[in-house]
Simulated assay, not measured.
Amino acid sequence: MYYYPLFVIIGACSYGVVSTIIKLSMLDGFSASEAVTSQFVMGFMLAVCIFAVQRKKLKSKGIKNIIPIGILTGMTNISYGLSLNYMPATLAVVLLFQFTWIGMLISCIAKRQFPGRAEYFSIFLLFVGTIPAAGLMDVDITRVPLQGWVWGLGAAFCYSLFLFFNGKTNPAMTTSNRLVLVSFFAFITTAVFQTPQIIWDGTLFTEGLWIYGLALGLFGMILPVYLFSISIPKIGLSKSSILSAVELPVAMIISVILLNEMVTLLQIFGVIIIIFGIFLSTLSRKEMLEKENRKKVFN
C-alpha cells in the first residue's frame, strides 16, 4: 500500500518540528534538558489518555520488543542533547542523519541481503544534500572534541535501532497498547538521565513548561511512534531510513517560519537534493511493487 511510506514521512516530519519547539522553550527561559524531560512526561500522559479513550486492556505479551523501543527513544534524545554541548547544531544534525546508511546496514545484516541500486543512489544523494542543507560548509570541525563525535554518532545509532525495533510486528498488541508502553519506558529512561525534578518543583505545570511539553510529546513521541509502528513493518527498515531523511528539510522550514532563521541558497539547494533522493527511493519501491503484481498475474 502506498500510504505506508506516507506514514513514515509524516512521522519523520513530526520529528522535524521538535528541534524548533525546544529552541522556543529555551527562548522562554527553560533549558534543553527540561524541555526534553517535559516531552516524555507529557508524551506518556497523552499516550495514557489515548489508551483510556479506546478502553483496551493493557497486554504485556511481546513486551520484550517494546522495551528497547522506549529506551532507544529516550537515548536518542539524550545523546543528541549531549552532542550539542560539544559542537554546533548544524554538525550535530549531520551526525544524526548518519542513521540513513546505518539503518540500511542494520537491515542488510538482519535480512542478509543487499539493497537495490536505487537505494544506494538515494543514500548518496541524502548524504551529499545534508552537508550544504545543514550549513556544514561554514563549520570548523577541527575544534570539535572526541566526545562530540561519539555522542553525535551515538544518537544516529540509537535512532537506527529505534527504527529497526519498530519494524518488528506484534499482532497480539494493539497500536495504542504499544504506544503507552513505549512512552512509559522512554519516560523512565529520560527521567534517569535528565531532570525529573521538573515534575515536583513546579517547573512543568506552574511555570508553563507543560505547553512546550505537550507539543513535544505530540510531535516527538505520539505521532512518530504511532505511525512508525504501523508502517515500518510493512515497508522495511532500509526504505524507512531513507524516507525519514525528510526530517531535515522540515526542521529547516519550521525554523525559518517560527524562529526567523536565515537560510542560504546553498542550504536550499541541499534540501532539493534530499527531497529528490527521497522521491527516488519512493519511486523505486513503486516499481518493485508493480513487478511483484505482474509476477502474481503471470503465476
Rank of each mutant, 00 (worst) to 15 (best):
I257L: 11
A251W: 10
L280W: 05
Q267S: 05
L259V: 06
Q267R: 01
F279D: 06
S231E: 04
L237K: 04
L265P: 00
P233G: 09
I254F: 01
N260S: 15
T264H: 01
I232M: 14
S244T: 03
P233A: 02
F279T: 09
S238A: 13
I254W: 08
I253E: 01
A245R: 08
L259P: 01
E261G: 05
S240N: 03
G277A: 07
P249G: 09
P233H: 05
I278W: 13
F269Y: 14
S241F: 11
A245P: 09
V246E: 02
M262N: 14
L259T: 05
F276S: 10
L265K: 14
S229E: 13
G236L: 06
A245Y: 10
K239E: 10
L258Y: 10
G270W: 07
L248Q: 05
E247Y: 03
A245W: 13
F276L: 15
I257D: 09
V263K: 10
L266F: 15
I275Y: 05
L248R: 13
S240C: 02
V250I: 12
M262S: 15
L259M: 09
L243H: 06
L248T: 13
E247S: 05
G277Y: 05
T264F: 00
I272H: 13
L243C: 03
F276E: 04
S244R: 04
L248S: 12
K239Q: 15
I242P: 04
I235W: 01
F276C: 14
S240T: 07
M252H: 01
T264N: 00
I242H: 02
L266V: 11
V263H: 08
E261M: 10
I272C: 13
L248M: 12
G236H: 02
I272A: 15
I242T: 09
S238Q: 11
A251D: 00
I257A: 14
V246W: 03
F269I: 11
L265S: 15
V250W: 01
S229Q: 11
S231W: 09
Q267T: 06
L266C: 04
T264P: 04
G277R: 06
I242F: 04
I253N: 08
P233M: 10
E261Y: 03
S240M: 11
I230M: 15
K234T: 00
A251P: 03
M262Q: 11
M262A: 14
L237P: 06
I232N: 09
I235A: 04
A251I: 01
S229G: 12
I242Y: 06
F276D: 06
V271C: 07
S244I: 03
I268E: 12
L265V: 14
S244M: 10
V263S: 08
M262V: 07
S229C: 02
E247I: 04
E247L: 08
S238R: 12
L237N: 08
Q267F: 02
K234W: 08
V250L: 05
M252K: 10
L266G: 02
L248C: 09
I235P: 13
N260V: 07
M252Q: 00
T264D: 06
K234S: 07
E261P: 06
G270Y: 07
I230D: 05
L265C: 03
I242K: 11
S231P: 11
I274P: 06
P249C: 02
K239W: 00
I253R: 04
E261S: 01
